[in-house]
């Protein structure tokens, strides 16, 4: 449903960004994009979300629907709006006044917090609100840019489970940028490993295990070793060049 063809966006005389990215995403898939920092993975999401229009190549979605949801590393809630109004932010004017937000408030486990302001929320709760805001417009594709990297380990696991349970209910297609190998293995169906500057897809790892998975499962550990190995190759290659 989402096809990306020879996508390229570089900065600083082709020293940063990414190039030659080709992949397609099927409906309901969770795709992970893994890579060390500086390989252009966040830039890729900015291009896909439309925040960065200066790219080359082609992005096409089957339905021609450009309804995209995005979650950032920070919650990016509007501090002057209550949780309720933050969740409803992306809706049209009439819908904002309805109580459509209630479904999503319950979905992310924040029932009863609708009148609170962001300043009164913990990091995890703020990120839950951001999830609800991203989902309420029922996006075709949900783009997640390291959404849990600023959270503590426990909150992170809770929110990963929350994301999975939402996926089970709504079958939302997701594109998850992360630098956490365990997170990618726990959530994703396929993982693209980006390497280089500018970054290119270096390898694709399929995680053929039905979700929900068990953390620390033997198969996932094996895949993790495989991915680490792939990333190590990069290190060696860099060492050889010097």
């Amino acid at each position: 449903m989402l096809h990306i063809n020879r996508l390229k966006r570089t900065f600083n005389n082709n020293q940063a960004g990414f190039q030659n990215i080709n992949f397609s995403v099927d409906k309901g898939e969770i795709i992970g994009i893994l890579g060390t920092s500086g390989c252009g993975k966040s830039t890729l999401l900015r291009v896909l979300s439309g925040l960065d229009p200066n790219y080359e190549g082609k992005i096409s979605s089957k339905d021609g629907n450009d309804n995209i949801g995005m979650m950032f590393q920070e919650p990016r809630l509007l501090p002057w709006l209550s949780v309720k109004d933050n969740i409803s932010f992306g809706l049209e004017k009439e819908e904002r006044k309805s109580n459509k937000y209630q479904t999503y408030l319950d979905l992310v486990g924040l029932s009863g917090f609708d009148q609170h302001y962001p300043k009164d929320l913990s990091g995890g709760m703020a990120q839950r609100t951001a999830i609800a805001r991203a989902l309420i417009t029922e996006p075709e594709v949900l783009l997640l840019d390291e959404p849990f990297s600023a959270l503590d380990a426990f909150t992170k696991m809770q929110l990963q489970d929350l994301l999975l349970s939402i996926w089970q209910k709504k079958q939302t297609t997701m594109l998850l940028v992360t630098h956490d190998i365990d997170e990618a293995l726990y959530l994703c169906d396929r993982i693209f490993i980006l390497k280089g500057q500018p970054g290119e897809v270096f390898a694709e790892v399929a995680v053929e295990k039905p979700k929900p998975r068990t953390r620390g499962d033997a198969y996932l550990s094996k895949q993790k070793a495989h991915i680490l190995n792939l990333l190590n190759v990069e290190k060696k290659a860099a060492g050889d060049e010097q």
Binding site: G50, I68, F72, L78, G90
Partner: peptide, 19 residues
């Protein structure tokens, strides 16, 4: 970062200013 949130939801310049 907040302006980008508005851009994700494709707000017009007027809506971006107001909201």
């Amino acid at each position: 970062k907040l302006i980008e949130v508005g851009k994700i939801y494709q707000l017009s310049p007027f809506q971006l200013t107001k909201r």
